[in-house]
Design a protein around this nucleic acid. Structure first.
Lengths: 210, 210
DNA sequence: TCGTAAGTTGACCCTAGGGTAAAGATACTG
DNA sequence: CAGTATCTTTACCCTAGGGTCAACTTACGA
């Protein structure tokens, strides 16, 4: 690879990182190229597709953040605290970083490494749900599929709130958590839980691409 | 107005009603014209804008449905039942009719009559929230602004779920309601409630047009 | 029945985005 | 320092949507 190409790739990575974090993973590629100061043709030459660019620029960063939250949550002794910490922190991550929100929402199934990060994060969620349910502090009818859907809806709401009341999402999370304690459950739920495949389908259509 | 024009307007109203209910208020105007069997130029001639068409086709229908839900809710004796009934029924309306969902979400501020219907619906929500709070069954820190945001997020989720698990939204509503009972409230909320203006801004950017 | 006002059409323009490839520029190598 | 392989640019194509208007067609009244 020629030196100028390497330099351009670096400029593009930097611009992409900025814009993905500011505006989410669906920012126009031409705008990334513009910010990097190269033509969009160069972007296509060097990366080929949005997915490839995402994988290079976002994946490791998102993985770090998600892993850290999961690790910290799992390190807490109290099962309810662990679960609540995970939910709150993950929502906070989504609210402050649109790129991470898009990762959690599992769009861009073309970005392989990214999807595996997304999968790992879901595994952590599953573990925390199981743990809290087993401890009898989380209502037994709540599944990790419910949690994923919650995250998906939260991501959209948090992004809409960002300019107006960047912390208001915390209210919704508080209401939800209070409804998820074992002692809050009132009646059998009026619908069945979703399978993982169903969750994936739904998350796909949740933010565009319907 | 000439007879053929009146006929075309009628065909367009019928097609619009169908498509709005199937796919929401942002369905392409050219597609409405196509289904009506006229050219899109005619649609612009006869209605001028999407907002005008919406006002003629959707407003009364949505008003009827929303009023009915509010009326039935307000007729219930138990304040919690009334509140819960309203939330559930309104969410059901959103899940089964994308047009109503868009009305509740308050997009299309250009459609005047529609916005007044939206406003009336919000007033009913406010009344039910007050009533339930006054009766001590609803947690006192929950405001009608929270309810409107909830509806907005719900509308998006329900639409994404429609093809996969059309009833799954009921789980989320159940979790929420269980968290909204007065006895579920655990701690002071971590953020302030939104003003009406803030809610309007947020709802505007919640579904596109950000 | 025929002139004309009223209505309709479809080709056209615009934006915003994704994507491609021929032609031009430039870094490296012998 | 010249030649070539590599890279970049730019002009272009595509889709999907909103919107306009000159030219055609048609309903209807005198």
């Amino acid at each position: 690879m020629r030196a100028d190409a390497r330099r351009n790739a670096e400029k593009l990575r930097a611009a992409a990182a900025e814009l993905f974090q500011e505006r989410g993973l669906d920012v126009p590629l031409k705008e990334i190229a513009r910010r990097a100061g190269v033509s969009h043709g160069t972007l296509y030459n060097l990366f080929g597709s949005r997915e490839a660019l995402i994988d290079e620029v976002v994946t490791d960063l998102a993985a770090d953040r998600l892993d850290e939250v999961a690790r910290e949550a799992l390190s807490l002794d109290d099962a309810w605290e662990a679960f609540a910490y995970y939910v709150e922190k993950l929502c906070e991550l989504q609210a402050t970083d649109p790129a991470v929100a898009d990762v959690v929402s599992g769009r861009y199934p073309g970005a392989e490494r990214l999807m595996s990060v997304c999968g790992q994060s879901m595994d952590a969620a599953e573990r925390l749900v199981e743990q809290a349910r087993a401890a009898g502090v989380l209502r037994p009818d709540f599944t990790s599929a419910d949690l994923v859907l919650t995250f998906g809806a939260h991501a959209l709401l948090a992004r809409a709130l960002a300019d107006t009341a960047p912390d208001a999402w915390r209210r919704g999370v508080a209401f939800l958590l209070d409804g998820l304690r074992a002692e809050s459950a009132q009646q059998p739920l009026p619908a069945d839980a979703l399978t993982q495949q169903q969750v994936q389908d739904v998350m796909g259509s949740l933010a565009g691409k319907g």
